[in-house]
């Protein structure tokens, strides 16, 4: 009895403390600073997400009034072979895209850090990222064209047979992954490069005095100290990679057959070609859940909130 009362007192005290912290002048200032961002978050992210959740429980074609159908859309989803295929395509795409992009980006960053301080090199690296996705896809579509593309003409000149890069189910997805690796590796490199600048030079000097070679220094010092940046790069690029859409829309339209019909593209098909808003929302919510899961797992695994520097 006494114990229960004590707990009650403690919780009310805690609540009061929380309120006091909330009403604290400094806290209010802080909240005011966050307010514009929170407003944007609420209007552009939170509300649409909740609305999406609501639409996912309806049968709605945009033009007529929606009918509430409960979880029927989710049921349909589990039985839809195209959905499972789309999920598989997205998964394979992430596996093709992320490791290469991250490793190449890291390599470029370390090479830049050790070899050059040139602004020009850094600028050149980021250029592909500054090109819009649609234009990048168009350019590669022409570069890799079987009839007129420079890549195929180089291949045949060197004695190889030409390739239908975007045209066969086997090559289409790896080609799209390739285009996006090309586009994003510069940004990844730049992020890693920025991370590298945060590692004190004294650590490297110490390593050098201890007789550590380049490779050992990389594995023992650079990589562990880069961990927070690595997590940031991985989380954002995996989320971005799962959302692959524009390159597919421009280069293959989801084909040939279903080889590049990734999840977001299939969601688009359902929403804006078949006008099945409910079903599209159900899949979007599912993708949301998958991405949240992956992000949390990564943050936990990599202890993102701690740095080995401190």
């Amino acid at each position: 009895m006494k114990q229960a009362a004590a707990i009650k007192v403690r919780t009310t005290l805690q609540r009061k403390a929380w309120w006091r912290a909330f009403l604290n002048r400094e806290a209010i200032t802080a909240y005011l600073f966050i307010l514009p961002a929170m407003l944007g978050f609420a209007v552009f992210y939170l509300y649409p997400t909740l609305r999406g959740l609501q639409i996912s429980t309806t049968d709605w074609n945009l033009l007529s009034d929606p009918d509430f159908v409960g979880l029927e859309n989710y049921q349909t989803m589990f039985q839809d072979p195209v959905f499972w295929n789309a999920l598989r395509v997205s998964g394979i795409y992430v596996l093709l895209n992320i490791p290469v992009q991250t490793i190449v980006g890291l390599f470029l960053a370390v090479a830049m850090d050790r070899l050059t301080r040139s602004m020009l090199v850094r600028a050149a690296l980021i250029v592909p990222y500054l090109i819009s996705n649609v234009i990048a896809a168009m350019v590669w579509l022409w570069l890799l064209d079987p009839f007129l593309g420079i890549v195929n003409s180089a291949l045949t000149t060197l004695g190889f047979s030409y390739q239908s890069f975007f045209g066969t189910p086997e090559l289409a997805l790896p080609t799209i992954a390739g285009v996006n690796i090309w586009r994003h590796m510069g940004l990844t490199a730049l992020l890693f490069y920025a991370g590298l600048q945060g590692i004190p030079r004294s650590v490297y000097e110490a390593a050098m005095i201890d007789g550590s070679d380049e490779i050992t220094t990389f594995w023992r010092i650079t990589l562990p100290l880069l961990r927070p940046v690595t997590v940031f790069v991985l989380v954002t690029s995996i989320v971005g990679s799962f959302q692959i859409f524009d390159t597919i829309a421009v280069a293959t339209g989801g084909g040939p057959v279903d080889a590049t019909r990734a999840l977001v593209f299939y969601i688009y098909d359902n929403a804006f070609k078949f006008f099945k808003m409910g079903y599209a929302s159900a899949m979007a919510i599912t993708l949301f859940a998958i991405l949240i899961f992956f992000s949390i797992v990564q943050l936990r695994l990599f202890r993102a909130d701690q740095s080995d520097l401190s």
Partner: peptide, 14 residues
């Protein structure tokens, strides 16, 4: 021409 090759270069372009 093969269907798989007709991408950026469309049939009418050929």
């Amino acid at each position: 021409p093969l269907f798989k090759d007709i991408k950026a270069t469309r049939g009418d372009t050929l």
